[in-house]
C-alpha cells in the first residue's frame, strides 16, 4: 500500500503539471510561461539558481529567464557556452546531466571548475541541466542548482523533463502563430516599392472591410513616412468587392490625396467595374489599363 509521504509528493507533482498545463493553455505571453515554469517547479523542487535559454533565429543561445538567489527574472542576453562546461556537454550530447556535488564529482569529458560560480558564498552543490527538445529539434537548455548536496535525483529529472517538453511545445506554438500572423498581415496588404516616388499596391482576392482596414493602416503609414508621391492600386487580382466596403475605399483614396499622394487605379476587371465605377468617378482618379500604362504616364509626369 502506498505511503502517505509518497502520495503527498505525488499530489504536488501532479498539481504542478496540471497547473502548468492550465497556464500554457490560457496565454500567448512567453514571459508568463517562463515565470510560471519556474514558480511551479520551485514548489516541488528546491532551486537556488537556474537558467532557461533558447536559441534565437540566428541560432545564438540566449538566456530568457534567470533565477538568482531564489528570485526569477526575465532576461534577454546572449550566452557564450565555453567548451568543456556541463552546458556544452548537454547541448552536444542532447542528454540530461546531473551532479550531486559539483565540487567533488568528476566527469571525464567536462571540466567542472568551469561550472563553479564566482560567488562562493552562494555556491551551489547540486546541479541539474537538460536540453529543451521538441522531437529531434534542439530548442535550448534549462539548468537548476541548489546549495545542498544531492538535492536532485531521478524524480526531479523526470519532472523537469516533462515540464521542459510542455514549455518547448508552447514556445514553439507561440512562435509559429506569430510567424503566421506576420505572414497573414503581409499577404493581406502586399506592397511593391518601385522607387522612392512610386509604389504599386496589388489589391487581391475578396476585398471586404477587414482587408481594406489592414491595407489602409499599412499603406498610409508608408506613404506618410516615406513621402511617396504616386500609389498605383492594381485591381487585376481582385476577385470580388463587398459593397459594404465602399465607404472605406472612398476614405482610403481621400486619405492618400490628403497626404499628397496621387492615386492611380489599374487593371479594373469587367466583373467589378459596375460596383467600382461610382467610387472611381467621384474621386477623379486616373484609371489605366495595366501597370505599364501607369508607368508610361508617370515617366511623362516626373
Amino acid at each position: 500500500m502506498p505511503t502517505t509521504e509518497a502520495l503527498v509528493r505525488a499530489r504536488a507533482e501532479l498539481e504542478c503539471i496540471q497547473e502548468f498545463g492550465r497556464i500554457i493553455h490560457s496565454t500567448r505571453d512567453r514571459f508568463v510561461v517562463y515565470e510560471s515554469f519556474y514558480q511551479l517547479l520551485e514548489q516541488v523542487v528546491p532551486i537556488d539558481h537556474g537558467t532557461i535559454s533558447f536559441f534565437d533565429a540566428q541560432q545564438n543561445l540566449r538566456h530568457v529567464y534567470v533565477i538568482a538567489h531564489r528570485r526569477g527574472n526575465f532576461a534577454d542576453e546572449p550566452v557564450t557556452i565555453k567548451p568543456h562546461t556541463p552546458s556544452a556537454w548537454i547541448l552536444r550530447q542532447r542528454k540530461p546531466l546531473l551532479f550531486e556535488n559539483i565540487y567533488t564529482d568528476s566527469h571525464s569529458e567536462i571540466n567542472l571548475e568551469h561550472a563553479l560560480g564566482a560567488d562562493l558564498h552562494h555556491a551551489s552543490c547540486s546541479w541539474l541541466g537538460l536540453p529543451i527538445m521538441l522531437g529531434s529539434q534542439l530548442l535550448g537548455l534549462v539548468t537548476i542548482q541548489h546549495h545542498e548536496t544531492a538535492a536532485y535525483g531521478d524524480r526531479e529529472l523526470q519532472l523537469l523533463q516533462t515540464l521542459s517538453l510542455m514549455l518547448a511545445t508552447t514556445i514553439n506554438q507561440i512562435q509559429r502563430v506569430e510567424e503566421l500572423e506576420v505572414l497573414r498581415l503581409a499577404l493581406s496588404a502586399p506592397t511593391i516599392p518601385v522607387d522612392q516616388h512610386l509604389w504599386i499596391v496589388p489589391v487581391i482576392g475578396r476585398v471586404d472591410q477587414q482587408r481594406l482596414a489592414i491595407l489602409q493602416t499599412i499603406l498610409l503609414g508608408h506613404v506618410e513616412r516615406q513621402r511617396i508621391r504616386y500609389v498605383v492600386l492594381d485591381l487585376t487580382g481582385m476577385r470580388s468587392f463587398d459593397p459594404q466596403a465602399t465607404g472605406l475605399f472612398n476614405k482610403l483614396i481621400g486619405a492618400l490625396r490628403l497626404l499628397g499622394a496621387t492615386c492611380i487605379v489599374s487593371g479594373v476587371q469587367a466583373e467589378n467595374s459596375a460596383v467600382l465605377s461610382p467610387i472611381l468617378s467621384q474621386h477623379n482618379v486616373l484609371i489605366v489599363r495595366d501597370v505599364q500604362q501607369s508607368l508610361r504616364y508617370l515617366k511623362r509626369q516626373i
Binding site: L180, E181, A186, L187, I192, D234, G237, G267, V291, L295
Partner: peptide, 25 residues
Amino acid sequence: LELEVSELDIPRIPLSDDVLIVPLI
C-alpha cells in the same frame, strides 16, 4: 491558422501583356 494563410491569395501583378511581377512575401 495554416489553412487561413494558405487560402489567402498570392499577389501577382501583370505589368503589361508581357511582364508579370510576383512579390515573394
